[in-house]
Design a binder for these strands. Structure first.
Lengths: 195, 195, 195, 195
DNA sequence: TATTAACCGAGACGGTACGTCCGGTCTTGGA
DNA sequence: TCCAAGACCGGACGTACCGTCTCGGTTAATA
């Protein structure tokens, strides 16, 4: 157990914290991920570079938190049918991935995460694990309704959904078609339904 | 018509060209994409930096050619059935994406390509367009056999297949399961077959 | 009035400052001015290149300070006679110009200074102006003793003395004859004395 | 003995020779010595770089010939008196040194010559030796007229005259005062006359 | 109330890579 | 053998960031 470690000295300034996140999200949206530097984020936030490094280990962690942690974890959709649930889930995912800052950050972010085992583990546990849990819940209900068979390769389905959207958003660079979620839900939904 | 533009002056040395590509592929496999610098590639190839910049505009273009252009364009599979064709196609794709240098390069490469409109266009026309053409051919045969309906969203299927594999390879960082191609072919194959 | 401009942030490291100057002087003496690069100076000083560029705008300014600013401004000689004063002044000047680092640096330094209006102004105000002031003082005493007439072209005399020594040292490249100062003092001294 | 070595193959193109010299003089006058590169000279002359290197060993030799060899060796002045001869000689020297291309080239040229023993020797033998010969001739006449004593340190006088003008032209960067030659002739003339 | 520890902004630190430029050489096809 | 063109290797340039460190100064909780 880690003791709570009663904090001594001056406590961290939460306004600085927020200012850094805001500055990071803005700069990523304006300049892109690669052209966003820690120094520039600190300068825009009116903060020293150390104040950034004291809280985040690097650009990837900072931008990840700035861009993807604002989103409230939406409840797992429950529309009563697998296609409906999938469509709802994907619409959410599409929306999250195609927000300006997110779309600008995603490819670079993924590259930095992929290059570091520690970050890879973090992304798996903090981003993919909850998503997988939601997907599992959704599938369990579909199994009970007889729509899919148990034993689905959930990881594969998750990689497929996320990968499809990422590839589309990352390599097109424009707002994704509004039908993307529907089409993808249909494609994958039929791919996994029982027969 | 593009004029042949009679070449003048000393022609470019094809051994230098090849040495650079080899050095780039090796360094990416050894150090990863981010830690590979143009200067280091030039040094290992025994070449001046200018000789690299004369041929490629930057790291992304160079590594892309070094890692993905060696592969011979395999013929579109024709096994007689949609699932067979898809599986064959995906096995090829999985193999190409999970070669050591390719797996090490992919995330960073995709990030750099996504960050530049010019490179984005190149990847679309040189990598995705041929793949789409192959997929179209494959689907046309499946339509004639009655396995799928005409009017498939081929782009979406392509993004789905490539995205799924990329996401899997990029975020796991290990050799992909040998069943990946089969499972994905089954998933997507069933998703698009006519009924 | 220049505001004191309260310094903020980490102060500059005076050991780095000194190490750079020492390294620059050594390299100029060893390799010559042209073969001395900022990068090599930084490396020998154990310092990043930025640390050099933060203090000096280029090689000329750095080497000038490294080679000519160590010298204490010697007091204007006062031997009681014009020939004595001139000889003493010139012996000092010869000694300063023919120190190994100075002799190696002078021609290149002069070339770089001559090529830039800003540097030209600096050399005029920081090097020539004090020398001229000393010469004026020396001449004023000689005028009072009746040795020279007032209204001497001091600038011309200064250019003549410095130019003669520079030309000799720069184009011979060896230790100047010990009689150089004496001979030159005699030549110019007689040239300006009143009759 | 070196044989005349009957030339074989295509003879050198003398128009190229002249075009290179002209281009070099122009570029030095326009951009200064340091900013003039062999490549740029070749390009402006419409010539390959090798054609330059085939005739000159480097920038210093080329610019020296381009800037200082056009001048016809003026005859040694013979006005009948030492002051007159000196003034005439110096007016010529001032004019030669302060021509636009010469003034722009001199400091850099001197630096490159000083940095190389071979070039130093060339400048001594090709530039200073003839000048010294002229000075000797001039002084011999003055000795016969009883104006100066034999045994003058001719080298020192030459360094003084040339150094004074060089220092003045190089560090002022403007057209020298028209009185420069007169003043300097008076100064040095009185310095060496017999009494 | 005084001490102390962690915070803060600023900016210098040693390093590394960038992409450009030039030097001097070499290699084409053609004159 | 020369020529124009231009590629070759090497190396310096000056800039930008990285992540760390060092200032003077601030802000609480502890003693």
């Amino acid at each position: 157990m880690t003791l709570p470690r009663a904090p001594r000295g001056r406590p961290r300034d939460s306004r600085a914290h927020q200012a850094i996140l805001t500055a990071a999200a803005e700069l990523v949206a304006e300049l892109g991920y690669a052209a966003t530097s820690i120094g520039a984020v600190a300068a825009r936030a009116g903060v020293g570079k150390d104040t950034v490094y004291r809280r985040w280990s690097g650009k990837a962690e900072l931008v990840y938190e700035a861009v993807f942690t604002g989103t409230e974890a939406a409840p797992v959709p429950d529309t009563g049918s697998l296609p409906g649930d999938l469509t709802a889930l994907l619409e959410e995912l599409v929306q999250e991935f195609s927000a300006p800052a997110a779309a600008a950050a995603l490819p670079g972010l993924l590259a930095d995460f992929a290059a570091s085992p520690e970050l890879q583990a973090r992304i798996r546990s903090e981003f993919l694990a909850p998503a997988k849990a939601g997907l599992v819940e959704l599938f369990e209900r579909a199994v009970q309704r007889g729509e899919v068979d148990p034993g689905l390769p959930v990881d594969l389905v998750l990689d497929t959904l996320a990968g499809a959207i990422f590839f589309h958003v990352g390599l097109v660079g424009e707002q994704p078609s509004p039908r993307l979620a529907t089409q993808l839900a249909a494609l994958v939904g039929r791919g996994i339904e029982s027969r």
